[in-house]
Structure formats: C-alpha cells, structure tokens
Design a protein around this nucleic acid. Structure first.
Length: 557
RNA sequence: UGGCCUAUGGUGUAAUUGGCAACACGUCUGAUUUUGGUUCAGAAGAGUCUAGGUUCGAUCCCUAGUAGGCCAACCA
C-alpha cells in the first residue's frame, strides 16, 4: 500500500550507499570495538546500534572486537559484562568475538615491516625529553637524536624489547613521519611500548604492547572492516590511520567519525562512572541510577526502547546534548504497550466503606493491559476496608473543576469497583487524617453501572486485608545539572541527594504476590516499576523505572 | 602563535544534493477516557551563527569573521 514518505538517510548511510553504488566492496563490514576496562553505557548503546544496525540494514556483518592492547586496565570481568549487554540489546556477533590480542604476533610483524621500510625506529628518550621534543599544537616538534638509527640496529633492539631486555619505558618504537606536522599525532607517534605486565588473555607472553594507533586500524584491516566508525575525538587520528595502512599496504579500511552521545542530567564518561562506583556514590555498576546498560536494564528500561531511542536521535557530526526526555519517551512508549497494570498505593490511608457488609468480599475483574487485548485479566478483591493514597484525599479541596479526587461529600470511582461518596474522616490528635469514611453506590459496579452517574475522578485502591507490602525504590535523576559538560567544578557536587528514596509503607494489590524478578508493571496513575533482583522470599522489591507523564502535576507546580 | 571539525525552533535530526524549512521529543489548547496515563485534533515556536560573494534563486557552493568542539597519555 501507499509508500510512506521516503526515509532520509544519515550521513553514514549516504556514504555506504554511495560506496555500494561505486562497487567498492561486496558487502559491508563494521565492528564494535570496546576496550574491556569498564561497563558499557548508553553512549556505547548508540555505537552498538549504529554498527550492528548498519550491518543488518545493508546485509553485512558486524564484528565484536575487544580492543585489549593495554594490560594495565583490562579484565575478563568486563569482557563478560560487555557480551551480556550486547546480547541483551538484541545483537549477535556471530560464532565468536575477536580480540586485538589475537593479532599481537601479526602486529609485531607489521612493526618489523615498517622498520624495514625505514618508517619506524626505536627511541630511547626519557618521557620528559620525549615530551619536550614533541612541541605543542602551536610549536613544531624536534627530531629525536635516535631517529636515524640504522635499520638493522632498529630491528635488533626491537627484538630485544620483545625479549624483555629493557625495563618499562626504556625504549619505544615510533613511526617516522613528521615532527613538524601541525597534527600532533603525526609527530612520530609511539607504536609500541614496554609493559612487563600480564595480559588477561596472553598472560606473560608479551612485554611489549602496541598502542591504540598501531592496533586499531591494523585490526580493522585484518578483519577487512569496510566502515570503521568511531567518535569525533578520533578525527585527528585519521591521517595516521590512513598513513599506517598505506605504509603496510594492507586492506584499506576507512574511518568515519560521528558525534558521541551526550545526555542531559547524565554523565557518560567511563572514568566518572568508575569514580561513582568506587567512591560508593552508587551501589555498583548496575545501580539503577547509572547510565550503564546494566544499570538501565535493572532500572527497567527495555532493550527495544533503547534501540528506538538511538533511532530517534540519529547520527551526525555535530556535538550537542540530547534531552533525556527523548529517552524517557521511548521507554514509556514501549512500557505502555507491554507492562501489566496493577494498583499500588505509595502512601496508604485507610478508606472504610461504611455501608459495605463487615466480612463480605467481592471479586472484581480487571484487564491486565487495556492497550493489549490479549493480555488477560486479573482478580481484585473488594472489601469494606481499603487503602487509597493519601494524596488522593483533601480535607478542604479546591473546586471540583480543579480537583477530581476525594474530599468531604465528593464522589469518585474506585477503578474496577464502585463509585463512592466521602461521608467523613477521622483525624489523630496531631491533626493528621487517619481514616476516611465513604458509602458506595451498589448501582455503579464497574462494567454494569446503570446509574448514569458521571464522576471525574478515578482512584486506585487496594483491599486492606489482602494488601501485599513491598519495598519501593524510587529513583530519580542522578544529577541536578542539565549540562554536565559545561561545569567547572567536581561533577560529584552536582549529584542529586534525592536520587534514591526508599518507600517501605507501600501496599500493592494481591495479584503481585507471584511476581518474579524482572517483571515490569505499571502502577496505575503512578509509573512503571520493575521487580529488582534484591527481592527475596517474602519480600518484593520494586525499582521505579519512570513516573507516568503527569499533566496535572505540571499544571500545578 | 597553529591544525582539524561543527553551526537549522527549547532538544535531537531532515530538506529529493541550488527551488522560499520538515519530522520526533518537549511546551500549550481542546476532545475522548473507569489511569489528570494512552489516544485523537489543533496551536505556538527557527527564516537556517554574522557579513559579503556566485546565482534568476542559497540551509545547501565560495570567502572572511564569530561561536562551540577536538588535538601536546608509553590511554582508548
């Protein structure tokens, strides 16, 4: 049927389609190259969806490659969490993951080839001298006195480096390019450094390790990556990326940069996230307030909504800051269609239906999700004593046009139950309302209401004798500042002190008794919640994923 | 005394590659609603950073300027 408006392509898709048209390759090959030194976050999700998504869209493949060239920081723990997160996001990297460390021998041979061409040399400057000669962006550098060592000697020393003849830092292998280049990365960049450290995969086999610049592009080339996508800050590396491939005469992978994701009220820097974890500002990498994939998963954001989000924000070369509202919208959109509804009362107050028989219980039926007719129904016991939310009653409410809820002599519907009229309330000696009294209208039963009565307000409720209590962890944004990129001081001073409040008085309808870890619900009129893994026998713990949009609160704040 | 990149409503992206700026989110109305949710209808909001130039015509091409970002780790 009617073709929708022609979809517009982002600049990378345009590039790919142009390349396809020109017949540059058989099929596209992308890769997602995380360094296994931390947990993946929402920013990585953008890259994952981009790389895997492009491969899917154009019938190519996307490799998962662990960029593990620095044994100082990398650990197997991270390899596993990264795999889990990518799988959860819904992507598949085929039969096996790749590791830059698997290429160490080939990379070493590449280095030898470069030396043989006279395009690399062993330097023995101290770090201080090295930096002095490097110059600055506005001042050209100077050549090292070791720059013109004979090729044979370079090869011998490089071999000796591999064999462990030197201590860390005593020698480095450098590319011989141009010490006066305005691009700092072309001023004889370091290709290999000595680190007498065990590597998480190669153990103690190596004591020299390639740097990013000498590992990444070469690994791309080995895997015949057609489109090597990375973030903007690697732009200045591209001339070096190309230079090395050209010198080595290997497969010409092409690097294309795009803007990384910045989110309002959110910090997405591995270093800062680590600081939050190690300083115990949060409970761990998977704390539901963290923007890590594991954190937002635990919080209750769905993989589908993350994918949708990355689609919505697109990809470009402009650096900006994305409003978290876009993310939250994607999450609500998905959850609205999938989450079963239940009644939950965050701040219970007793409501007594005075004209209801003392021990009588009636079972009401409610659909699990009005947005999904196949979702089935559940039973709700209705009794004389109920709980409603304290915020749904006002002793002296504004006009009925402004306030739809309960107040003296006001009528509301108890959703899926009856219309009730407030007949009174009881206060404790310190003036707090402790009980509300009402009468129900037997002609107004949900689904068979013949009364013709119209009420504006509809309240959630829970049968008091059947109520299930639970711990509700109310999460809010971790930071109070919108743009954390712009701050001058310590980012931790911008933490929201109320990012987590724990509610232990909440009561839920009895149907949740069977809820399992990972189950997600919409507490009607409140928000989306997910059963946390900290739950245990006899105690349900819920994380608030997000509050529902609230037009009323907005108007009245 | 530098080099590279970027600049479109509040935010993120579009604009058939030169034909008087579109979509999503957000905001605001109104309708519907047994969730102040959802859904539906509608509105406001940019004349495309500035100044020149090329052109019949510029968001798009050129020049200069301005603003922002990135670059001097034996990190990635």
């Amino acid at each position: 049927m009617g073709q929708k408006k022609k979809e517009s392509l982002n600049f990378i898709e345009q590039l790919i389609e142009r390349d396809v048209k020109e017949g540059k390759f058989i099929k596209i090959q992308t890769r997602f190259p995380p360094e296994p030194n931390g947990y993946l976050h929402i920013g990585h999700a953008k890259s994952i969806c981009l790389n895997f998504g492009l491969a899917q869209k154009y019938g190519g493949e996307c490799n998962l490659r662990f960029d593990d060239t620095n044994p100082e920081k990398e650990e197997t723990e991270y390899v596993n969490s990264i795999k889990e997160d990518i799988r959860w996001l819904g992507f598949d990297w085929g039969p096996s993951a790749y590791y830059t460390s698997d290429y160490f021998e080939r990379l070493y041979q590449f280095a030898v080839r470069l030396i043989e061409k006279g395009s690399a040399y062993v330097d023995e400057l101290s770090a201080v001298e090295f930096n002095k000669l490097k110059g600055s962006p506005t001042e050209p550098g100077k050549e090292s006195p070791f720059r013109n060592r004979p090729i044979e000697e370079n090869i011998k020393i490089f071999e000796a480096m591999r064999l462990g003849a030197f201590q860390d830092g005593e020698r480095v292998l450098r590319a011989k390019i141009d010490m006066s280049s305005p691009n700092m990365h072309l001023r004889d960049p370091i290709l290999y450094r000595i680190k007498h450290l065990a590597h998480h995969r190669t153990g103690s086999k190596w004591c020299i390790y390639p740097t990013y610049d000498f590992a990444h592009g070469q690994s791309d080339s080995i895997e015949q990556i057609t489109h090597s996508l990375c973030t903007l800050e690697f732009e200045v590396h591209r001339p070096l990326y190309d230079w090395l491939i050209q010198q080595l005469e290997i497969y010409p992978s092409k690097q294309t940069e795009f803007a990384r994701l910045n989110l309002s009220y959110t910090i997405v820097s591995k270093r800062s996230l680590r600081e939050l974890v190690e300083g115990h500002y949060v409970a761990g990498w998977d704390d539901p307030r963290m923007p890590t994939i594991s954190g937002i998963r635990r919080r209750g954001f769905t993989a589908k909504s993350i994918r949708k989000f990355t689609e919505i924000i697109g990809v470009a070369r402009r650096n900006g800051i994305t409003d978290v509202a876009l993310l939250e919208h994607s999450v609500r959109e998905d959850l609205n269609k999938t989450a079963h509804r239940i009644f939950g009362i965050m701040d219970p107050i007793k409501l007594i239906i005075t004209n209801w028989p003392l021990d009588y219980q009636e079972v009401m039926m409610a659909e699990n999700n009005p947005e999904d007719k196949t979702s089935g129904t559940r039973e709700l016991p209705f009794t004389r004593e109920l709980f409603i939310d304290r915020s749904d009653f006002l002793e002296d409410p504004p006009s009925p046009k402004k306030w739809f809820r309960l107040g003296p002599d006001r009528e509301v519907r108890l959703k899926k139950g009856y219309i009730i009229k407030c007949t009174g309330f009881k206060k404790s000696e310190n003036g707090e309302v402790v009980e509300i009294y009402a009468e129900y209208d037997p002609n107004t039963k949900s689904g068979q209401d013949m009364s013709g009565k119209k009420v504006k307000g509809t309240l959630g409720w829970v049968s008091a004798p059947n109520a299930v209590s639970a711990e509700i962890r109310m999460y809010d944004r971790l930071f109070l500042t919108e743009n954390l990129d712009k701050i001058e001081d310590d980012f931790k001073t911008h933490l929201n002190p109320d990012s987590l409040t724990i509610n232990n008085k909440a009561v839920l309808e009895p149907s949740v008794r069977h809820a399992q870890v990972g189950d997600q619900f919409q507490f009607e009129r409140i928000g989306y919640f997910r059963v946390d893994e900290d739950s245990h026998y006899g105690k349900l713990i819920f994380n608030r994923t997000l509050a529902l949009r609230d037009g009323w609160n907005k108007r009245n704040n």
